[in-house]
Amino acid sequence: MSLGDEERGRLRERFQDYARTRDRAIRDELIEAHLRLAEHLARRFVNRGVPIDDLVQVASLGLLKAVERFEPERGLEFSTFATPTIVGELKRHFRDKGWSVRVPRRVQEMHVEVNALVGELTQQLGRSPTINELAARARTSEEEVLEAMEAAQAYRSTSIDAPAVAAEDERGIANQLGDEDVNLLDSENRLLVSELLTGLPKRERLMLQLRFYEGMTQSQIADRLGISQMHVSRLLAKSLAMLRERLEGSDHP
């Protein structure tokens, strides 16, 4: 992975260019030039149940951060500077994901697939699918599907009551839910909302209560209930849609 002297000198200049101009094209070029470092570091984390492609993605994100933060005038080699940043990013990925070393890759992949299929089949059937239907679509056994469902929780069972640290992507989720959520908390709407809530099915009501009254994030809810964040997200979306429907219904009787 070591670069030739000439190449290294050229890159040092490019780092200085980037520090001065903050030009995205230069940044991309610098990332490209160091991708092998990211790949190399990602490989240290294989056999922990996360596909290598994902690891490289995470390492590349670390690389991007390193390129952005690197100050060439300090005279440090970029690889020396970047390595702890990239490794830190990889370690954090394992921590945040909650994927543990011991969840077999097969189960993890099935977990992802089942999650996607649930959305698909729910839409097609107009109801929640049975495990048998999921297994048939995934061309696997019902047991594998059940195991995959449990994988969401597998390594959090020791901290059922400890609220998780808010994930970094919560901002993204807030965006995804839209502005209505904020309005739910306005005092004048609160009464109306709680009236509408009482009419919702219990499961949907719980999701809204946890999210907006208890102020829990989606990942906190997922951790607390031992289900995947995707399932929480799906249930919340459904709950909000029901709420909206009711709201519109009450506006135009």
Partner: peptide, 10 residues
Amino acid sequence: TYDEVEDLRI
């Protein structure tokens, strides 16, 4: 159903 199984797991 899937949703009900999740309910029961919870």
